[in-house]
Design a protein around this nucleic acid. Structure first.
Length: 409
DNA sequence: TCTGGGGTCCTAGGACCC
DNA sequence: TCTGGGGTCCTAGGACCC
């Protein structure tokens, strides 16, 4: 007999999701924007206020279409550092409530409040208190879904929007879930939705009614298993604290005005690598697999990757690898035109050595000299050798042998 | 109006090792 | 000498999410 299952209380999971996050921050900081349609991001819509959404404006929509749908909208430039700060304040409120907080993105998190029933109260009351605190202390609207599984809590938070609470009662999960359209299942996008619709599967209940084997033939094995489980509200995933990124990347769209030259492409790659490795070093991480990502004139895509023998956070080897990869696909680029160039590093590990991060793209040579001096002061003269200077762009500093922390894990 | 920038996970074939 | 199965890593592509 499974002792664990006896009298184990149902889980109480919250999914908290800030409403129209970037746009709400803008309305918070500028009273003139409140109650008005606000679009964040000019070229493409990064976020829009509910007033703009009512006119049909959606995230990822082109800026000109958005302005056509909603000419009276006020367009503002994104202020990422302000959003990032607001996010930190909101997460601090979550963590004050429960140690079991799993951040999913800048504006969403799962919070496990199962163990708080006796001490604090029932999950819906906790959720309301979080909503109140976020409103009072950070000045932002937030919606929360409450359910017995992570997945269902996430579905519920969509029902809660805007600025609301939605509780799926224990025992009432399937009554809530089954009438919903398949698109509400996490992992069903436009393509899968279409595949399912062509077999007559429109609602979550429809999916629950077919066998995983049958489903498997239509959407693939893993996806079928996943969808089947969700449709029956089987989701044993725990709320995991302290998840780490498994890749870091950057990309740039290039426009279609004219064909891009090799030199220009090389410069874009340099900038992307500079940015990515800088973030890597600041996060004290290293990576081993370098990928470049291309999008052609017809919007088809390609990737090329290479795995290095050793993980690195240094600009130079990553840059060299990217340029090698670019060299290999260049004939294709010449033929098909390039509209986007991106790169990323995956296969990440914690850095076991000090890395100095000083992208010259944004700093001066004097900054580098100052940094080198301060490191020498702290660790001794030899600490700074060998140093590799990369033109005017970056500096690599391999390690201080005495300062290599023990591997934790 | 041609469609941003940051990610995750899955599939599938080939190389390689035991 | 011939053959098999299992496992891991690498590469490329695709779907999806915020």
């Amino acid at each position: 007999m499974n002792v664990d299952s006896v009298d184990r209380p149902a889980k109480a999971i919250l999914h908290a999701d800030l409403d129209a996050f970037y746009a709400s921050v803008e309305q918070r900081d500028n009273p003139a924007l409140r109650g008005k349609p606000v679009i964040v991001g000019g070229g493409v819509v990064l976020a829009s206020s509910y007033e703009a959404r009512q006119k049909g404006v959606k995230t990822a929509m082109g800026g000109s279409e958005a302005r056509r749908l909603c000419p009276e909208a006020i367009v503002v430039e994104p202020r990422m550092s302000v959003y990032s700060q607001a996010s930190k304040e909101v997460f601090a409120i979550f963590e004050d409530v429960s140690p079991l907080v799993e951040g999913i993105s800048i504006d969403e998190a799962f919070i496990d409040v199962t163990g708080l029933w006796r001490l604090v109260g029932p999950a819906p009351a906790i959720a309301q208190s979080i909503r109140r605190k976020v409103r009072e202390e950070v000045g932002l609207p937030i919606s929360i879904g409450v359910a017995t599984t992570k997945f269902l809590a996430k579905v519920a938070s969509v029902s809660a929007k805007p600025d609301g609470l939605w509780v799926v009662p224990e025992g009432g999960e399937l009554d809530y879930l089954h009438p919903l359209p398949v698109r509400r299942l996490w992992g069903v996008g436009a393509i899968t939705e279409e595949k399912l619709a062509s077999r007559g599967l429109m609602t979550v209940g429809d999916i629950a009614g077919v066998s995983p084997e049958q489903l498997s033939g239509w959407v693939g094995k893993a996806s079928a298993h996943h969808l089947s489980a969700l449709a029956h509200n089987r989701d044993p995933r725990r709320v995991v604290v302290g998840k780490r990124r498994s890749s870091v990347g950057a990309q740039r769209s290039l426009g279609t005005r004219r064909p891009i030259g090799r030199l220009e492409a090389d410069n874009v790659v340099l900038e992307l690598v500079d940015r990515v490795t800088d973030r890597l070093r600041k996060g004290e991480r290293v990576g081993r697999t370098v990928t470049i990502r291309l999008r052609f004139n017809d919007f088809s895509r390609a990737t090329r990757s290479r795995t290095l023998p050793q993980a690195t956070g240094a600009t130079e080897p990553v840059l060299r690898t990217c340029r090698d990869l670019l060299e290999e696909v260049w004939p294709e680029v010449k033929e098909r035109g390039l509209t986007l160039l991106g790169m990323s590093i995956s296969n990440l590990d914690d850095a076991h050595a000090v890395q100095l991060s000083l992208p010259f793209a944004r700093r001066s040579r004097d900054d580098a000299d100052t940094a080198i001096d301060s490191i020498r002061e702290k660790f001794g003269r030899d600490a700074i050798s060998p140093v590799t200077l990369l033109g005017k762009r970056g500096i690599e500093m391999p390690m201080l042998p005495d300062d290599i922390p023990a591997r934790s894990g």
